[in-house]
């Protein structure tokens, strides 16, 4: 099982801040594809190239291979400061 967290407008679009599912062995790219099947809003929110991804609180690219127990997060480009 992995935990997936969503932030900012991505969280608002998909309508949840967190979910857990089986995804170990998948790449981030494959996980994004799988999540996009959940509906139009998910497809819109989780487009490759626009969404940033962190694994265990560290930025990773779409080729990252997910391990059991990972905390994966999806969020838009950051706007702090």
């Amino acid at each position: 099982m992995i935990t997936i967290r969503f932030f900012a407008q991505i969280r608002e679009l998909v309508g949840t801040s967190e979910l857990t599912l089986e995804a170990d062995g998948l790449t981030i790219s494959q996980l994004l594809y799988q999540l996009a099947q959940r509906g139009d809003k998910w497809t819109m929110a989780l487009k490759e190239k626009t969404v940033l991804c962190a694994a265990n609180k560290q930025l990773v690219d779409y080729q990252y291979l997910i391990n059991n127990g990972d905390e994966i997060a999806f969020f838009p480009p950051v706007t702090g400061g």
Binding site: L59, V78, G81
Partner: peptide, 11 residues
């Protein structure tokens, strides 16, 4: 670097 990498979002 903070502006580009720190995970903050403004509404």
């Amino acid at each position: 670097i903070l502006k580009n990498e720190a995970p903050f979002w403004k509404r």
